[in-house]
Design a protein around this nucleic acid. Structure first.
Lengths: 84, 84
DNA sequence: CTATTAATTAGATATTTGTCTAAATACTTA
DNA sequence: TAAGTATTTAGACAAATATCTAATTAATAG
């Protein structure tokens, strides 16, 4: 839960998730969408991966990232639990 | 959204919300539940208030805190939007 | 093979955050 | 009104975080 909320607690990372919602993207394509250096984006992607919010697959020299919505159930349930 | 996720990104604050789920509590009662100084808890409560996750009312020399679940809808919707 | 492209790792740095103690404010009660 | 209790504010400090540039790793193409 900690890792999850930590990953979600950043505007850039939340925006990355929104981009990946539309379609899978390479690290470079993601970086191109922001005014932030590639290493920084790489770091954000790492945190998102640690939280299981995205997964990645190496395709040749590219790394393709995908959104993983499954883990969002946990956040939903945490919130639901609070609401009762 | 930023303020909300920021407030949720801390174990102590999440635990405070869980305590308030059961019943309203004074600042002192909340502080008593943790091994953290009162000023620190006060600061946590402030962040939760900024995020509208709790509200407070002064009752004599006490300040009673309550959980505000309404704002959680926003988190829910943000997540739901990502899941489609 | 060597050069190029994609991505990550390393290391540095400024900012943010959580925590503390001490002091201030607000209310109650003797 | 003076003393005591509840809470917050102020200021300091260590740890965590987001960012950068430079260097490294991995894969492709000439």
């Amino acid at each position: 839960m900690n890792t999850l909320f930590k990953a979600l607690n950043d505007e850039t990372r939340r925006e990355i998730l929104n981009l990946l919602k539309e379609k899978d993207l390479t690290a470079g394509e993601i970086a191109a969408a922001f005014d932030i250096s590639k290493p920084s984006i790489s770091h954000h992607l790492d945190l998102l991966k640690q939280a299981n919010l995205v997964s990645s697959i190496k395709k040749g020299q590219y790394v393709v990232y995908s959104l993983n919505t499954t883990i969002l159930e946990e956040v939903m349930q945490w919130i639901m639990h609070l609401k009762n």
